[in-house]
Computed example of a mutant assay.
Amino acid sequence: MSTDIGLDLGTASILVYIKGKGVVLKEPAVVAFDRDTEKIKAIGEEARLMVGRTPGNIVALRPLHEGVIADYSVTEQMIRYFIQKAIGKRSYRKPRINVCVPSGATDVQRKAVMDATYQAGARSVVIVDESMAAAIGAGLDIMRPCGNMIVDIGGGTTDIAVVSLGGVVESSSIKVAGNDFDEAIVKYMRKKHNLLIGDRTAEEVKIQIGNCYRRNDDKKMEVRGRNLVTGLPKSIIITSEETEEALRDVTTQVIEAIHEVLEKTPPELSADIAHRGIVMTGGGSLLQGLEELIEAKLGINTLIAEEPMTAVAIGTGRYTEFFSPKESLTIN
């Protein structure tokens, strides 16, 4: 029996959706590679634990950068590993796979994703725009003649689109997302506290106390790193108010991109968006206060989808329920 799979190839995480089962796998898009033997040592969560802690011959890398393939052969092996882990050895036929890519991906980048998925063992491949997948996964009625705005903030890219009648009316894809939030925290800690921290620590700060809209309840967290003056280990206490300052420039870029898409949107659809609001998906949408910040800056009701982390994977898997494969990039 053949399996229908939806594959969310994210910069930070890989999610696998199987028709009839839902999202069955979610693991970090990290591969541990041995330079001496040129072999893969670990993939997924096991490899993520090695980030920043490997000897010289082993490098923990992310083969996907800003939503597209940066290392083709490693990506192919990673896709094969996740597909086999999700479906096991029970399938007698190669699976049919829908794969999502950022809206701003070029034809060459889309072809690379398609080829890698075929090499990983797919029978047929359908390439799905991330913004359309997010809209389907968020439960928006995309086939009706009314405007829906979706903002998907992933690890490498933020995809913004206005969807109506089963098509994208206006869209934008910017290379500012969750990883840039982490990077902004690393830069802030270096500049303000002379403390060098790693990406994993920055991510923990973002999740625990990260905030981009001022509140009365100020959270605190102890952060450990290396003192850039003495070179010795050091720990300090930082507050959520400081993270608001650290993230200000990055969140402003996201809001400006949403504003630009709204400016290009036809007036009838703008009226629909003003009435229905903006729907957010992706891990980046869970940043504390982002919802309120967009509302305050744009004056439009903003809400987070019911399952923001898995919305794109669900939408990718369900894409062929709304559109026939002939209407998308597919090779049999």
Rank of each mutant, 00 (worst) to 15 (best):
K19Q: 09
A42V: 02
E27W: 08
A246S: 03
Q84I: 10
R53M: 09
I255W: 02
Y118A: 01
I258D: 01
E263T: 12
I40S: 08
T252R: 09
P95G: 04
C212H: 03
H259L: 06
P308G: 05
I300A: 01
V229A: 12
C146H: 11
Y188Q: 05
A134L: 04
V16G: 07
L228H: 05
R215G: 10
N98G: 05
G104Q: 13
G121K: 11
D249N: 15
R123P: 05
D71P: 06
A32G: 13
I209S: 06
M1A: 04
D182I: 07
G178Y: 06
E268T: 15
G167L: 01
L286G: 04
G139C: 04
E204F: 07
P267C: 09
V74I: 15
D182L: 04
V279A: 11
E222S: 09
Y213R: 10
E245N: 02
R200Y: 06
T243M: 04
N148P: 03
I314R: 14
M114F: 05
G104V: 08
T158M: 02
T239P: 07
V128R: 01
S240Y: 14
R248K: 12
Q288E: 13
L228T: 10
L262S: 12
M50L: 14
V24D: 08
A138W: 04
N194F: 12
G283W: 13
K21T: 06
A305Y: 03
I294A: 01
I160S: 06
R215T: 14
V101M: 03
L7Y: 08
E183C: 08
